[in-house]
Design a protein around this nucleic acid. Structure first.
Lengths: 202, 202
DNA sequence: AATGGATTCACCATAAAGGAGAGTCCCTAT
DNA sequence: ATAGGGACTCTCCTTTATGGTGAATCCATT
């Protein structure tokens, strides 16, 4: 339903579930993918584990990859052992930090129940997070006029209304939307507006 | 540009800026509004203050409202005094927890530079966060068929393609989208899809 | 001065979206 | 049982969006 494809073996690398937070800025990520088991998500949410979670604290304080078992931060709420009771036994945390790119971070947590992760898998997951981080980068080539038109489409205005509000002809708005669709690789204005919104461009 | 209106006096209550995270679930909110001063946002982001920020830790551990000056949690990175150097002098933290509503929390941080907040203002901000929390609640009356159609609109499919993929007539898809627009109070399918996406419905 | 890019606009044909109305199916409350 | 209500379906018609083509303008770079 989501249209997300698994071209990078994520389902095989994390058969027990995973969590991805891509392009975290001030506090929260532009894109969040939560494929952890629902019971654990429910329990984690209800107990507000995030700020105490050693995995979260590790990815905020480090760059690279580590097995959960290699995290030496204290765990007063015993969140990691609690996770095991939900079947989340072996895990890897990956943190990617791209200082050149607006200080945006991406991180992921990956789980399997059968055995500890290998060094190769750690490396593969590091690469995966980096690739997803790059893939989630929004295009920066859209002009102000194009973004303005997209934003008004998102708000439910018609081309005629947009043209009148902006003070140009309807043809100009069409052209702006057409350009925007091309740059966002979108088939329709609705998709382009949704993409621009998801990317935080509007 | 965003269409957000200030019908609740937020600009007067927080002349120095504010931050709102509405309907926080597993880790991240459905809606984030960051109206803090840009230099502070930049500094805060680059230093990854969030997990250490006593204000964030307070809202995650409490319900209600407090002045920043009344937060007794330790502040090893001296984030609050650092904030003062950016002009964020007096602040209020509000945390709203609605256990009856899927364990979703909302919180906000509000700033003014001229004087400490009054009790009345604390109360007003508490009400404001609760109202915003409720207002951000997505409608739950959309049917599966309607959400399916909206999701395919968001992905850039045409009505004809949607109808063919789903196995119904184009007219049926139009009706589903019409119903969805009514329920979401949207003028166009593009707006409806963007709204449903923002609400996390699709 | 020339090149290229971005923007703006017009015109036309076609495709898609939107609106009104009515019928069917199914579940529920009277 | 039966009268609603909601979801779903469909048709007919109107309005709107999209795609293609061409062209003029403005601007920064070469």
């Amino acid at each position: 339903m989501d249209g997300m494809i698994d071209g990078d073996g994520l389902n095989e690398l994390a058969p027990g579930g995973y969590y991805l937070a891509l392009r975290v800025g001030f506090a929260f990520p532009m894109l969040e993918v939560n494929a952890l088991p629902e019971p654990w998500v429910e329990h984690y949410t209800r107990h507000r584990f995030m700020l105490s979670d050693p995995v979260i604290r590790w990815v905020y304080g480090n760059t690279g990859a580590t097995r959960w078992s290699g995290i030496t931060l204290d765990d007063p709420l015993r969140i990691l052992s609690c996770a095991r009771t939900f079947g989340l036994r072996y895990g890897v945390a990956v943190s990617h930090f791209d200082s050149a790119d607006a200080a945006l971070r991406s991180f992921g947590s990956f789980v399997r129940a059968d055995r500890e992760y290998t060094d190769d898998e750690l490396h593969a997951l590091t690469t995966l997070v980096r690739n997803r981080h790059v893939a989630a980068k929004p295009p920066d080539t859209l002009t102000e006029a194009e973004l303005e038109a997209l934003d008004m489409v998102r708000q439910g205005l018609r081309l005629k209304q947009i043209a009148h509000a902006v003070g140009v002809t309807e043809g100009a708005i069409k052209q702006r939307l057409k350009n925007a669709k091309g740059k966002l690789n979108a088939q329709t204005s609705a998709q382009a507006a949704a993409l621009a919104s998801k990317f935080g461009l509007i």
